[in-house]
Design a binder for these strands. Structure first.
Lengths: 236, 236
DNA sequence: ATTTCAAATCTGATATATCAAGTTTCACAC
DNA sequence: GTGTGAAACTTGATATATCAGATTTGAAAT
């Protein structure tokens, strides 16, 4: 093992530097393309030309191909053998991504309610309290951060690494739109009520209620997002 | 558009040849690796060497890299920037894949119950009846096929393309083990009862019951599978 | 024996070249 | 005008080459 992070004279409790800090070209391309697709900058069915894309990014086709494989596995593009890739994203796809997230987040909330320990409960309540304050003061930026913290904490409490990863791939919120939503006091209050209900259920160890409240929250907030981005309501 | 599939003298209702018939090297590698990982032929944490793998498959590293990107997005391996990929699969990962499938299949069953039409209902009942016969006669091969037909039909009835794709990636059944399970009369009967309950709920348009029965079915049959492969019970 | 550190080596990341399947173009026949 | 088909072109699939970060090695210093 590497010794650089555990010098003989140190106490050794440093965390290893996360290799994911180093951004590769393929990851940059992947993120850029994902963001572009999800925010509707490509038409459904539109063909993607590897060489042109490589030229636009100013790189070779190798990292492009890799990024496209990732997008393909995510379900955002479809690869036709020897005919290239086409965009597969529309409002209906987005609706289904929300449903997928609802299904997975509610499953993870269920498990979190069963597995959370006392420290986790305290931390969860603390996060909820900070959310109350930020909601009252209308601090949209804090709310966006706290929202991530909240869900991350639940993911960790569930002890589900795979499910948490899977959920990440159902995420397609755009920061700017998120801020727009959080700037609306009514929306802000709705989200807070839901978050508090979820936190209560998990802290109380009520797995079924945690599941239900989480699902409702994800679907409702997802629909709000959709109605802004696609000017239409999703439905379950 | 291509005219080859729509000759002027024909009626035009031929389906286009699916481009996925043409197997590429990267897909072959992807499937082979996925199968190998899922059936435990790699140790968790084991490092994968691209060049060696390419040599084993007798191909260049390009399709290998692409296949690894797909596995990475599926969550079966982890890529550390500039340090290569390591296997991320263990019994706990398998348990979570079952939970993911349960969450997604139950969501899709919920929607199928709401969206299925009369033709779909009839077809669903017909499949269930064929399952009854195959169960009675102990025809394991037919049951394996019918099982796929059953779930596929529900996927189609839900009209959810994205969710159906996502579910595919949570599948890790091995045909041989599947047969072992279906050869046990008790298991066979349990599965039949569950399938019938699911079909009834969907045909009756009872979305909540469809969701519940589907979830129970996926979790229970998944646990049966796990107990055989990993010699241990999963839990929810 | 242990530490240090630079050279050698390994290996993933990226670039470039080649190959072959798919598409388009257009002259030609009917 | 319509259909045919071969050549030209396009482009994804694969192979190979190059680059650079990470790891290993081993000799020198302590």
């Amino acid at each position: 093992m590497a010794t650089a992070n555990q010098p003989t004279s140190g106490n050794g409790d440093f965390e290893k530097i996360d290799a994911s800090f180093q951004i590769t070209v393929r990851d940059h391309v992947h993120r850029a393309m994902r963001s572009a697709i999800i925010s509707g900058r490509f038409q459904p069915g539109q063909k993607i030309n590897e060489r042109k894309l490589a030229e636009q990014f100013g790189v070779s086709t190798t990292p492009i191909k890799e990024a496209l494989r990732q997008l393909e596995t995510e379900g955002l593009v479809e690869a036709l053998a020897r005919r290239g890739v086409v965009i597969r994203f529309s409002s209906s796809w987005a609706e289904e991504m929300i449903l997928a997230r609802a299904a997975l987040e509610s499953m993870i909330a269920h498990l979190a309610a069963k597995r959370i320990d006392e420290n986790g409960r305290e931390e969860l309540r603390a996060i909820a309290n900070r959310m109350k304050e930020a909601t009252a003061s209308g601090d949209a930026d804090s709310l966006i951060t706290l929202n991530e913290t909240f869900h991350d904490h639940i993911h960790r409490s569930s002890q589900c690494g795979y499910l948490a990863k899977l959920i990440e791939r159902q995420q397609f919120y755009d920061a700017s739109i998120r801020r727009v939503i959080h700037l609306d006091p009514t929306e802000r209050q709705k989200a807070l009520n839901e978050h508090v209900a979820i936190a209560d259920a998990i802290a109380a160890g009520d797995a079924d209620r945690a599941e239900r409240t989480m699902r409702d929250h994800v679907v409702r907030s997802g629909d709000t997002y959709l109605s802004i981005v696609f000017k239409k309501q999703g439905e379950i």
